[in-house]
Structures are given as C-alpha cells and as structure tokens.
C-alpha cells in the first residue's frame, strides 16, 4: 500500500511529536501517578516499595493538622497567604509598569530587560542576594532605614515579617513575566477604540476602566491562574531564605512543598510526603477550576 504525500507527512509529524510525548509520559506523568500510589503506602525509600496502608497517611496528616503548632496547618495557611499577598500585588504592579512601559519609546528595551532579568535568574541566587539586602545592621535596606532615621527591621528573622518579606521577593522575581505578557496584551488593543472614545469625550481614567482593563481580561485570568499556581508551589525562595531552610522562624514561612520535601527527604516519610503532594494537587486543581469558571467571562465589543 502506498501512502500519499499527505499521509506520510502526518506520520512524520506524529513521529516527531512522540519524542515530546515520551518525555511527558516518563518524566511528568509517570512520577505524578507514582506519587498517588506512594501516598497510599507505608513507602520505604530505600527499598522502593512498601505495604498498602490505604488512607493511613491522610489520616495522619489530618491528626497532625489538629495538633498545636502543627507544621501541616502552618504550611497550608502560609501557602494560602503567599497566594493572597503575592498574586494581587504582582498583578497590580505588573499592570502599572506595563502601562508606563507602553507609553515610552526611548530605552523601552532596556527597561524590559531590567524587569525581566529577575524572572530568568535562579531562585537560589535571588534568595542569596535578598538575604544580604535583608541582613540586620549590615544589610543595604536596614542601612537605608538608618540613614533616613527609621528603626531597623528584622525582616526574615521575625515570625511576623518573614512571610511578607519573602512574598515581596517572589513578587519582584515574577514581576517581569507578568509585565511582558501585559505589554503584549496592551499592544493588541486596537488604537482606534481609544480614538473613538476620546472623540466621545472620555478621559484617561475612563479609557483605562472601559477599554484597557476589560480587553485585558483574558490576560488577567491567565496571569492569575499561572501566578496562583506558582505561589502554591513556592519552595526554592523559602528554602533558601528561612533559617536553615526549615520554613522558620517558628514555621512562619513554611509552605506545603517545603513540608513535602522535609518529610520526604529529611525524615524519609515518603508515604506521608506523597499524601501531602496529592492534597496540594487537588488544592491547585480546585482553585484553578474556580478561577477559570468565575473570571473568564468573554468580553466582546
């Protein structure tokens, strides 16, 4: 049987795409499914297996969550806090910066690079630099506060300031990505909408609220969903900015992923860590579904 040129092209397309498929199946999907499996077992890390214990790991998490000063409770509530602080500030700042960048012609490339650079920088490197900036006494920020006569702040050393301090770094790091996406969105909006509105007597404020913001809705949804997922999975910054990478002081910065890591690789409780991972998976899924349902209304003109 002879294949037509078109059929052969299709076969070749599948062959090339299968490379990516193999990657996803082996590197992404298989471990994901394995994590579900591990979460139902008393998994022994060194033997690579363990007896089936059903929901015991989940029950243990539930019991631990009920204890005073529980790491699990701290991890989940901190994670939600990272999202609530991080995502809105990231969106608002990014939109403001993108609107300003859209106005300028000169040096705009320089600014874009400047805002985007942190996004492509390793989180560990970012964490180290910010650790130095946040240092008590010798850190740049505290010396600046001294200079203007304000009291020094403990930042990551204090249970109440540590989480906002780390969130600020996360926002700073992710800002560039959101700015670039917003910028692309702003440039997509046809200029004649603004012209028409101006002729009708709309002021700048109205232009923003009535044209720019509604037309950016799909982008806002996209960035909200992506941002939320990235804050729910926050790990590297916290591990490198909290004392000894423990999510401290006093569990004030720990996240779900950090607890997964600590339970799995420091206490070798893989089943428990697997169960936490599964819970996080469903949390992300649930939040994403809710966001997609409520925020993605179509805007048409």
């Amino acid at each position: 049987m002879r294949l037509t040129l078109h059929q052969r092209q299709i076969i070749w397309a599948y062959i090339f795409m299968s490379a990516a498929l193999v990657f996803f199946v082996v590197i992404r999907w298989y471990p994901t499914i394995l994590a579900f499996n591990v979460s139902f077992r008393d998994w022994n890390v060194f033997e690579g297996s363990g007896p089936w214990v059903g929901l015991e790991n989940y029950q243990e998490i539930w019991q631990d969550a009920g204890k005073p000063r529980s790491s699990v409770t701290a991890a989940f509530s901190n994670t939600v806090r990272y999202v609530l602080f991080g995502v809105p500030s990231q969106l608002v700042l990014a939109l403001a910066i993108a609107l300003l960048l859209a106005q300028i012609r000169r040096l705009s490339a320089v600014f874009r690079v400047a805002y985007f650079a942190p996004y492509v920088t390793s989180a560990v490197a970012v964490a180290f630099v910010w650790n130095w900036l946040y240092q008590p006494e010798t850190g740049l920020i505290n010396q600046g506060l001294d200079l203007v006569g304000l009291p020094q702040q403990p930042f990551t050393k204090s249970p109440s300031q540590a989480l906002p301090s780390i969130t600020a770094v996360a926002v700073w790091q992710n800002l560039g990505f959101a700015v670039i996406i917003f910028l692309a969105g702003i440039q997509q909006i046809p200029g004649h909408y603004y012209e028409a509105a101006r002729i009708d007597g709309a002021n700048a404020w109205q232009l923003f609220w009535r044209i720019t913001l509604p037309l950016l809705n799909p982008i806002i949804v996209y960035l909200t969903v992506l941002g939320t997922i990235s804050y729910l999975r926050l790990f590297a910054l916290v591990q490198n900015m909290s004392p000894q990478g423990t999510g401290g002081p006093l569990k004030s910065t720990t996240t779900v992923v950090l607890e997964v890591y600590r339970e799995g690789f420091s206490s070798y409780k893989m089943g428990y860590a697997g169960a936490l991972t599964v819970l996080l998976f469903f949390l992300i899924l649930l939040i994403t579904i809710i966001q997609l349902r409520f925020f993605s209304r179509r805007v048409e003109y």
Partner: peptide
C-alpha cells in the same frame, strides 16, 4: 485517569530495582 492509574499501579507488586 490518575486515580485509575494509581489503583492499577498499586495492585501490581512494586518493582524492586535495587
């Protein structure tokens, strides 16, 4: 799909590569 896969995996004895 994930749940089905997890149950299938759990049902067969885990591989012992070590």
């Amino acid at each position: 799909a994930l749940l089905v896969a997890a149950i299938l995996l759990a049902a067969c004895p885990a591989a012992m590569p070590a």
